[in-house]
Computed example of a mutant assay.
Amino acid sequence: MAEVALRWKAEKNRGLFAIVDDADLPLVIGHKWRAHRVKGSHTVYAKTWTRNGTIFMHHLIVGRRRGKEVDHRDGNGLNNRRTNLRHVTHQENLQSCFDMRRERQFQAWYDEKLQELS
């Protein structure tokens, strides 16, 4: 596993880095990566510019498929290890986001109840 430092514009993105497999480091090392926060979301991705336009790190690593999106299994847009990336439909990607949000809400509720019992 390797960490790739990201450039930043906003102060809140300072110190961010993306995670890639050691085998994929040669693919990403020659680019200047920036932190990109999606509007209306808390998810941050790594993106760069090429002569063909903007490309996200996860697309560079696993490629793009017609009618599919790349899902980060753990919900962390900066975790670009191959075991964390998968091609899914848009509906599957939305379901994954919904499931992770519900799981986090349950975990917060559960942690609160444990503190009350302590």
Score class of each variant (00 low, 15 high):
Met1His: 15
Met1Arg: 15
Val4Pro: 02
Ala5Thr: 11
Arg7Ala: 06
Lys9Asp: 13
Ala10Pro: 00
Ala10His: 13
Ala10Ile: 01
Glu11Val: 09
Lys12Ala: 13
Lys12Ile: 10
Gly15Lys: 10
Gly15Ile: 08
Gly15Phe: 10
Gly15Asn: 07
Leu16Asn: 07
Ile19Leu: 15
Ile19Arg: 13
Val20Ser: 01
Asp22Ser: 12
Asp24Leu: 06
Leu25Gln: 10
Pro26Met: 07
Pro26Ser: 06
Val28Asn: 06
Val28Gly: 00
Gly30Cys: 06
His31Thr: 01
Lys32His: 09
Lys32Gln: 13
Trp33Met: 01
Trp33Pro: 04
Ala35Thr: 02
Ala35Pro: 05
His36Ile: 12
Gly40Pro: 05
Ser41Tyr: 03
His42Phe: 10
Val44Thr: 12
Trp49Ile: 11
Thr50Tyr: 07
Gly53Phe: 06
Ile55Gly: 02
Met57Ile: 00
His58Lys: 05
His59Gly: 00
Leu60Ser: 01
Ile61Thr: 02
Val62Gln: 02
Val62His: 03
Val62Ser: 04
Gly63Leu: 08
Arg66Asn: 08
Arg66Ser: 11
Arg66Glu: 13
Gly67Ser: 10
Gly67Trp: 09
Glu69Lys: 13
Val70Gly: 01
Asp74Glu: 08
Leu78Ile: 00
Asn79Pro: 03
Arg81Ser: 01
Thr83Ile: 15
His87Pro: 07
His87Phe: 12
Val88His: 03
Val88Leu: 07
Val88Met: 07
Val88Cys: 09
His90Ile: 05
Glu92Pro: 04
Glu92Val: 01
Asn93Ile: 07
Asn93Arg: 10
Leu94Lys: 12
Leu94Tyr: 03
Gln95Phe: 05
Cys97Arg: 15
Asp99Thr: 10
Asp99Ser: 11
Arg101Thr: 12
Gln105Arg: 10
Phe106Ile: 10
Gln107His: 07
Gln107Ser: 11
Ala108Pro: 00
Ala108Tyr: 12
Tyr110Thr: 00
Tyr110Met: 09
Asp111Thr: 04
Glu112Arg: 15
Glu112Asn: 13
Lys113Ser: 08
Lys113Arg: 15
Leu114Cys: 11
Leu114Tyr: 06
Leu114Trp: 07
Ser118Glu: 14
